[in-house]
């Protein structure tokens, strides 16, 4: 890991509430959300759309300021976005005017993360290699597939050595085969370079496959419905998805999500 000692206390989400006031009245996107994420955990947020999982991620990222409660990372209250909580977006957000290498380098050239050029080169080399894009480091994003673009985004996030990776449906735009491949790649990357991850997804299977804990959220108002630990051993591979334990856990989570979905539908029908 990068030679920097930080106090690792993880992320503490403390009674976070988020109310949007609009013309049509107030919308309570989050109510009293409490969650402690330990260092090195992989947390997936799942739930019906409108349950506030992306809102919660944006609050932790610092893009949104909560209307109640606060979020602390290693004991510091967060204020605005910063490189200790790097976001990987669904729309890739890889800078199209920079090459793969320049993309990964981008964060290290910013004044807050400035390093010597030697160190920068080493870090970039390491993470370009880690995501398997050594042969494409001088390519522009337009020449890459969706999965490769997302790997650039992951390497770019890793390069600034964040405390936590915030991933907002990062594989949502990929086809099924690529998604499966990217899930495995992500686990392999984490195996080599441990990070805390908060991952938003629609897919219960994806959540079960990746996480140490799955957080199921409920809508209207958005809140935590249930937290389910996944005790499947790592490394997990494609075959894991067909094991009986996996299938059982997945089914139990799906049941909770379906209940929430159902409730939401009944609510909106009234």
């Amino acid at each position: 890991m990068q030679e920097e000692r930080r106090e690792q206390n993880g992320i503490v989400i403390n009674r976070v509430g988020m109310t949007y006031s609009g013309i049509a009245g107030n919308v309570e996107a989050l109510r009293n959300v409490n969650l402690k994420i330990e260092p090195g955990e992989f947390i997936c947020l799942v739930g019906p759309s409108g349950c506030g999982k992306t809102t919660l991620l944006n609050v932790i990222a610092g893009f949104l300021e909560p209307t109640a409660g606060d979020v602390a990372i290693d004991g510091r209250k967060i204020q605005g976005p910063g490189p200790d909580r790097c976001v990987v977006f669904q729309q890739y957000a890889v800078f199209p005017w920079l090459t793969v290498r320049e993309n990964v380098e981008f964060g290290l050239r910013l004044s807050v993360n400035k390093r010597s050029s030697d160190e920068t080169r080493q870090i970039v080399d390491r993470f370009v290699d880690l995501v398997g894009l050594k042969d494409f480091e001088n390519a522009f994003p337009k020449e890459l597939s969706g999965g490769m673009k997302q790997r650039v985004a992951i390497a770019r996030a890793y390069a600034v050595n964040p405390e936590v990776l915030l991933m907002d449906e990062p594989f949502g735009a990929l086809d099924a085969q690529t998604r499966q491949f990217m899930q495995e790649s992500l686990l392999q990357i984490l195996e080599k370079e441990r990070k805390t991850v908060l991952f938003v997804t629609h897919g219960v299977e994806e959540a079960t496959f990746l996480s140490t804990r799955v957080v199921v959220m409920a809508a209207r108002p958005g809140r935590i419905r249930e937290i389910i630990p996944i005790h499947l051993p790592y490394p997990r591979v494609a075959a894991t998805k067909t094991s009986p334990e996996f299938i059982a856990i997945r089914a139990s989570i799906e049941k909770v999500v379906r209940e929430e979905f159902q409730k939401q539908r009944e609510l909106s029908c009234n």
């Binding site: 910063g82 790097c86 957000a93 981008f106 910013l110 807050v112």
Partner: peptide, 16 residues
């Protein structure tokens, strides 16, 4: 705006 958000989460200031 996605690129601005991406830059912010990597730690970019306004001038950057």
């Amino acid at each position: 705006p996605i690129y601005i958000r991406a830059a912010k989460t990597l730690g970019a200031g306004n001038m950057e």
